[in-house]
Design a protein around this nucleic acid. Structure first.
Length: 861
RNA sequence: GGGGGAGUAGCCCAGUGGCAGAGGCAAGGGACUUAAAAUCCCUCCAGCGCGGGUUCGAAUCCCGCCUCCCCUACCA
């Protein structure tokens, strides 16, 4: 028998697949398309082709989808299984700024590297459908979809504060600024308002929330999206100012606590502050606002434990109290824990019912009034009772009621007294509406999407500005794409304009009437291209349209979408938003793009730490038996992310070099459930490799003419288990079933028949396709087995005539009996009693539980 | 603080009401070999994170805790 020459076998089959276009997928409109077959669209999240190349984490998901795709082909499906590149992005642009290499050059090089690495894994993508978001033939349609958004009124311009670094001459993202200084170079940064494009994703908040219901997605992802959208029901209430005619609108989820509202707080960015602030308070308030503006969002929220604020000198009126009531006058403060971007940017503060307000009230000695009494069981502290008996208490806050943020019975609340929280909310809402002071309101945490970047390496907006009239209009559809201009300097201009503004000629457009328009010089964020790439895969080479209607209708929705959990919110929410817009425009046939979603687990790696807990580079640790030694002393092995700094990164190319792509695939699929994270363990690779060698050895030059009955049975068992497990994406247990078969076939020393060899090769094909093709060839076939029908098992071969079942006394195992598989309860009970007669001597059997085919349990007194 | 997930052999993991084990790794022994590698055969190892409960019977269902991982965090 020929040895298992994986390198030669794999190279040969990869070449053959490419030459014979084995995985080309015809679609509607192609002459060889068979519309009678069912479709299956199985998609991987396409990667950003970084300079570092493929990581062993990528193939975990790609292998899992490839196994299913190959299986579905055997099952007679038209399988759409494409791959492409999310290739706009910062790294290529930064590299361009540093070296002058055009991002397109860097990108093309990285794409070639990624493609070669993926092809070396034997993944069955239809490479004729490859797409690249940076290709003008692709982003032409990204611009086209933007036009739809613009036409629907979902794109608008706004002045948004962004981080600006003078020294670097660029705009930075939040995470690139630490303590007000740039992460790179440590230069000072300031927040400054810049004109930005926004997309009105909030208009779709309710549908994005509701439609999650019917998706076959992980609970964790659904939960994250729900939280991100953050729907909350409450009331908007307007408080009149005691001087002047403006009022302060606030949003609250607890209108039932209005009697306990003792002050109001405005966000530092609130536009009303200037007009209401009293002269003597102005200086202090402005200083506070300047301080807040200089802080990053992170500092304002997470890092800042203690609340701060300043009094504006103004008062507003709590409408539930009569004039003369001391609680009617509510001081208005400014504090940075109130965010301008949520609700109305102003809140009513109920320190008796909100822990944040309570903390603020204690610090600044503002009145605390308890208005919700906890359920009786919750109020056993005497001072709480005392406080409830003392309405309108202006006493030392430290002895006043504790804060009760939960629900309960309304107290100190006039017409609400005695009502439950739920009833009190309703009553108060009614009262607010009757008096024209407020109304029910639903607020979302979801913000509109800041859709522009001051970058070169992104999609240009298809927009023109007319400077004199201030008009903005779309570029005509026929003039798309708006291609990126050639530049050799990718930095922003000195005056802060984006790099595209350097392309003077590109920027100027003269229309047919001779009017001069200026191009939009912002570009789109990296998310844009990935919002619709799954649609382009359906019809990637269409020059007339983004996709053909019939083609979209056939392939969509994506049946299975596999990718990392890091995209749980942003990418998946943005893509759903665009998809719904396209659905509303009648351009796609489904309201959701991704029917089933699976997050593959991370491939981690071992890391080592010493006694002090310091992490040690993995390449300097020696394994000695079960112990791990670094510089002579023992260190502890832990599981961590793969990272360059820990030097525990595995390169897929090295693994393929040493063991072959089939072993690599098999190992990744065998590591555990697709959703679980597990460390890369190089010690386990030989096991996977050994299995393939043993399987290969079953293919002796001569096949047997007469099938061995035991082998046939074992093969049917493997066929059943493998089929069922692949359907469940339980690839690890499917592989175990194949190992079981190989073990028993090896042990029996009998030779396979050709038919048995063929069927085994097909079972192996999804996991180790190169070797399986080679086995298929040994069985006498010249063509690929990729499209050969999946073998079907015979259930009757799997039932044995006799079985061994346990006999229990009081649920504890006491013996075993061998009986006919279809033995009746009476027979089983009798056989069981006989088998353990000695143990039953002198005991009374109170009850016998007999489960035919499973077990017998005798209950004795 | 909130949300999601996981704890079964030395390790990775099967088993979701009925004999704790499918598979792999590691370890030990043996065969082959002049020897080693490779290969083959055999063997060892846990009572299922902890404590209660339901049941004839619980790794599996229920309740309460512990540990670890991931996400999120002043959203009024």
């Amino acid at each position: 028998m020929a040895p298992y020459e994986f390198a030669e076998i794999e190279a040969r089959w990869q070449k053959q697949w490419e030459e014979e276009r084995t995985f080309r997928t015809p679609g509607p409109g192609d002459s060889d398309f068979d519309s009678s077959k069912p479709k299956y669209y199985i998609l991987d999240m396409f990667p950003y082709p970084s300079g570092a190349g493929l990581h062993v984490g990528h193939p975990k998901g790609y292998t899992a989808t490839d196994i299913l795709a190959r299986y579905k082909r055997h099952q007679g499906f038209n399988v759409l299984h494409p791959m492409g590149w999310d290739a706009f992005g910062l790294p290529a642009e930064q590299y361009a700024i540093q070296t002058g290499t055009h991002p397109a050059v860097t990108t093309a090089k990285n794409v070639d590297n990624y493609r070669a690495q993926l092809q070396a894994l034997g993944l069955s993508y239809d490479w004729e459908r490859e797409i690249n978001t940076t290709d003008p033939n692709y982003y032409r349609w990204t611009q086209w979809i933007f036009s739809k958004l613009y036409d629907q009124g979902l794109a608008y311009q706004a002045e948004v504060p962004v981080w600006w670094c003078e020294k670097l001459g660029t705009v930075l993202a939040n995470e690139e600024v630490i303590d007000g200084r740039s992460e790179r170079g440590d230069h000072p940064c300031v927040k400054r308002p810049l004109r930005q494009w926004m997309l009105k994703i909030t208009a779709y908040a309710e549908r994005l929330l509701e439609d999650l219901e019917d998706l076959d997605w992980p609970d964790s992802v659904k939960a994250m999206q729900r939280e991100w959208i953050g729907r909350s029901e409450g009331a908007e209430i307007k408080f009149e100012l005691d001087r002047g005619d403006a009022g302060i609108s606030v949003f609250t989820t607890r209108p039932d606590t209005l009697f306990g509202a003792t002050f109001c707080i405005l966000s530092p960015e609130h536009p009303l502050i200037d007009s209401i602030c009293t002269e003597e308070r102005k200086e202090e308030v402005n200083a506070y606002r300047r301080g807040a503006a200089a802080k990053s969002d992170l500092e304002r929220s997470e890092l800042q434990k203690e609340k701060t604020g300043v009094f504006t000198g103004a008062y507003c009126v709590n409408p539930v109290f009569e004039p003369g009531d001391p609680l009617r006058e509510m001081p208005v403060w400014v504090a940075d824990y109130v965010l301008m971007s949520y609700g109305t940017g102003a809140i009513m503060c109920v320190p008796g019912g909100d822990e944040r307000d309570y903390e603020f009230a204690i610090k600044y000695k503002l009145p605390v009034v308890p208005v919700v009494e906890p359920e009786p069981l919750a109020r056993n502290a005497p001072h709480v009772d005392q406080a409830f008996d003392n309405p309108h208490c202006f006493v030392d806050p430290t002895v006043v009621a504790e804060c009760w943020p939960g629900e309960g019975i309304a107290v100190n609340s006039g017409f609400l007294d005695g009502l439950t929280t739920e009833a009190a909310k309703k009553r108060m809402l009614g009262w607010l509406e009757e008096n024209g002071i407020g109304s029910a309101k639903v607020t979302y945490r979801l913000r509109d999407w800041l859709f522009s970047r001051q970058r070169y390496w992104g999609e240009p907006f298809p927009l023109l500005h007319h400077e004199e009239s201030g008009a903005t209009r779309l570029v005509e559809e026929g003039d798309l794409p708006v291609s990126l201009p050639e530049l050799d300097d990718f930095r922003p201009n000195e005056n802060g304009d984006p790099p595209l503004a350097r392309a003077k000629e590109w920027c100027e457009v003269v229309d047919s009437e001779g009017r001069v328009w200026k191009r939009e010089t912002n570009s789109m964020p990296q998310w844009a291209g990935s919002c619709w790439y799954y649609l382009r895969f359906c019809d990637p080479n269409n020059d007339e349209a983004a996709w053909n209607e019939a083609v979209e209708k056939y392939w969509m929705p994506v049946d299975l979408y596999v990718g990392g959990a890091e995209h749980a919110v942003l990418h998946l929410l943005y893509a759903r938003f665009w998809h719904k817009l396209l659905f509303d425009c009648g351009l796609v046939s489904t309201s959701e793009p991704f029917q089933k979603l699976v997050n593959q687990g991370m491939v981690q790696a071992y890391a080592y730490k010493d006694e002090r807990g310091a992490l040690i580079p993995a390449d300097q640790v020696e394994a000695k038996g079960d112990k791990f030694i670094y510089q002579g002393s023992e260190v502890e092995r832990i599981v961590a992310k793969m990272s360059k700094s820990l030097r525990n990164v595995t390169n897929p190319g090295d693994v393929i070099q040493e063991y072959g792509a089939d072993t690599m695939r098999l190992y990744e699929a065998f590591m555990g459930p697709i959703t679980a994270s597990a460390p890369w363990n190089p010690r386990d690779l030989p096991g996977a490799h050994r299995f393939l060698q043993r399987a290969w050895r079953l293919f002796e030059p001569e096949f047997s003419q007469e099938p061995n009955g035991e082998i046939e049975k074992a093969l049917h068992a493997a066929m059943k288990k493998t089929t069922q497990d692949i359907e469940q994406m339980a690839n690890n247990t499917a592989i175990a079933a194949l190992m079981e078969f190989v073990n028993s076939a090896t042990k029996s020393k009998a030779t396979l028949t050709q038919s048995q060899g063929e069927r085994f090769a097909l079972l192996l094909e999804p996991f180790a396709p190169h070797l399986a093709e080679e086995m298929w060839k040994v069985c006498g076939h010249a063509d690929s087995c990729a499209w050969v029908a999946w073998p079907e098992w015979e259930e009757s071969l799997l039932v044995s005539e006799t079985i061994e079942i346990p006999v229990q006394i009081n649920g504890k195992l006491r013996g075993r009996i061998t009986v006919d598989a279809d033995a009746q309860p009476d027979t089983l009970e009798a056989a069981a009693k006989e088998a353990i007669a000695d143990l039953l001597a002198g005991k009374t059997i109170k009850k016998a539980i007999v489960v035919p085919g499973r077990m017998v349990n005798l209950v004795v007194g």
